[in-house]
């Protein structure tokens, strides 16, 4: 669990500061043109991650996914480009640089605060933002529904048999469809409940919390910018 000012930063930072980490990384990734630049940049992100992430499970999971994507890109680059390894590896490293920081940062976004910043900071339409925040809130309910759907399928003999890939695919499809139906029905019930709480007639909403920028948020924003500047600076000084 988080201790000290650095480790708490990701949990306290405002959602726009967190999202900016991913955006800067995306832009910085364009400047990864050789292996040295790429490795130094990814190394810099890893080093900062060691200092700030509160727990390792999720960042490593994101790294694994980015890694899979990177290997795929490297392989196809190697196949498609006359079996030249070096440029393909650069492409792969760039994928990690572009995907990993943002996917980690977005996980720490608090939906309600994101809503405050989108509506009050970025002036997005209030109704859209309120509905968006309420929909993010429903992810927890979906996890619960997945468990219940899985139970009754298992009890009815329709659970997955992991030794039969085709059966597993069919099970996944059936579960995904049931979850979709469940989500849609849940969403319409929530829509009724929201409308009955004044949302139906709310064209000018107010916001119960202000969207503020604290010193931590500025530090996170500048930190994200500095990390993303590593590749262009390295390219410049050659």
């Amino acid at each position: 669990m988080p201790t000290g000012p650095l480790r708490g930063a990701l949990l306290r930072a405002n959602p726009l500061a967190l999202l900016s980490i991913g955006l800067f990384a995306l832009l910085g990734g364009f400047f990864v043109t050789d292996l040295r630049t790429g490795l130094v940049a990814v190394g810099a992100y890893l080093a900062v991650a060691v200092l700030v992430v509160p727990t390792w499970r999720y960042p490593l999971l994101c790294l694994a996914f980015s890694g899979v994507a990177a290997v795929t890109v490297t392989y196809s680059g190697w196949r498609g480009n006359g079996h030249e390894l070096a440029p393909a590896v650069v492409q792969g490293v760039r994928v990690v640089m572009v995907a990993w920081p943002g996917s980690v940062a977005i996980g720490y976004v608090d939906p309600a605060r994101l809503g405050d910043h989108l509506a009050q900071g970025l002036r997005l339409p209030a109704r859209f933002v309120a509905a968006f925040v309420a929909s993010l809130q429903r992810f927890g309910a979906l996890t619960h529904a997945w468990g219940q759907l899985d139970r009754s399928r298992r009890a009815r003999g329709l659970g997955p048999d992991w030794r039969r890939p085709l059966g597993v695919v069919r099970w996944m499809a059936s579960m995904a469809f049931a979850l979709l139906v469940h989500a849609l029905r849940g969403a319409s019930r929530t829509a009724v409940a929201m409308d009955a709480r004044g949302f139906a007639t709310a064209h000018e909403r107010s916001w119960a919390e202000p969207a503020t920028w604290s010193r931590t948020d500025i530090v996170v924003l500048v930190g994200g910018l500095l990390l993303a500047l590593v590749p262009p600076v390295l390219t410049l000084i050659g």
Partner: peptide
């Protein structure tokens, strides 16, 4: 079905905000 926020204060505030 009525829950729209992950903290109770903010959830109750939904109506007044509207």
């Amino acid at each position: 079905d009525a829950v729209v926020a992950d903290r109770i204060g903010r959830d109750v505030a939904f109506g007044p905000e509207n």
